[in-house]
Amino acid sequence: MMRHSTMDTPAGAFTAVVSGDGAVRAAGFTTDVTALLSLVHPDLAGESRPAAELGAVSTAVRSYLDGDLAALDEVPVEQRTGGEFMAHAWRVMRDIKPGTPVTYTEFARLAGRPAAVRAAAAACARNPVALFVPCHRVLRTDGTLGGYRWGLDVKTWLLDHERH
Rank of each mutant, 00 (worst) to 15 (best):
P76Y: 12
D43L: 09
C135P: 07
M1P: 07
W90S: 07
P10G: 03
R62N: 10
S38G: 07
E106R: 06
L158P: 05
T81G: 12
G12V: 03
N127S: 00
L54Q: 03
H4Q: 10
W157G: 06
V133R: 10
K155S: 09
V77K: 05
H136F: 03
V18F: 01
V129G: 03
L36C: 03
V129Y: 05
H161Q: 02
P42C: 03
G146F: 09
G147D: 15
Y148L: 09
T103M: 01
G82D: 11
A120I: 05
H41E: 02
G12W: 00
T103G: 03
A122P: 04
V117T: 12
D73S: 15
T100E: 03
D160P: 12
D8Q: 14
D8Y: 08
A60G: 08
L158T: 06
V92P: 14
R49K: 12
P134K: 08
A35H: 11
D8V: 10
D8L: 11
S19F: 02
S58I: 11
W157M: 05
T144G: 15
T81W: 07
A122N: 09
L39W: 01
R3G: 02
R80N: 01
F132K: 09
M7S: 14
D160C: 14
A71K: 09
R109P: 08
V129L: 06
E106I: 02
S58L: 09
F14N: 06
G20V: 02
G46N: 01
A56V: 13
F29G: 01
F85E: 06
W157R: 04
M7E: 15
A27E: 08
T9Y: 01
S19K: 02
F29C: 00
D68E: 10
A122F: 08
F132S: 10
S38L: 04
M86S: 13
H41T: 01
P128H: 00
M2V: 04
D73G: 14
L139T: 03
P76C: 12
R118Q: 10
S58Y: 11
T156A: 15
A115V: 13
A111V: 08
M93S: 13
T30D: 04
G83A: 10
